[in-house]
Design a protein around this nucleic acid. Sequence first.
DNA 1: CACCCGATTATCT
DNA 2: GATAATCGGGTGT
Length: 197
Amino acid sequence: MFNILNRSFFERKTEEVAKALLGKQIVHIVHGHPRAGIIVETEAYFYGDPASHCFKGMTKSNSALFGPVGHAYVYFIYGNHYCLNIVAHSKEVPAGGILIRALEPTLGRDEMIEARHGITGYQISNGPGKLAQALGITKTHNHKDLTIQDSLFITEGRSINPSEIITTGRIGISQAKDKPLRFYIANNPWVSQLKHT
DNA sequence: CACCCGATTATCT
DNA sequence: GATAATCGGGTGT
């Protein structure tokens, strides 16, 4: 029923996978009910990049980034928020991951609104902390294998034309801000930080 | 063990 | 546009 991406999908250059993930779908089964959304915005963070959590080598908290590709790396930030990354890098480097910055809800929207305490519309999942809360992602999902159909996994979604992909600098960091490693789908209203007048 | 700060968000003005 | 909320890991004493 779900067409799940296999591990080889994630064993490529991190920025290449970041672009390839646009249009794919994240599914989280909660209490038997699926919550899912199309990935519309990503950022690549790879080994040797001063803005990446893996820059200073492996520690207890970032070990997932050094583990098998296709697994989740979930971290807690600013005392309030979880962010979901997907481990992906080529065989030549030891670590790397992709931050999921925005989702377009497809399944279980009512459950997501409930998880977001009643917030509706684009605010459900147009930011990395927001989508983690909407899906119900917490640090318990760190290290989770996303290539098996269990509770949390990634499937095929919508096909994206390469001309629809916009590349910009990354958001919310102080190091290597200008590197073109943020990718999003053009004209998609769920992309983060858009004003909806 | 104390201190510092962050790949964010909500809620003000 | 500015800022508070809030907490775990990293770093140094």
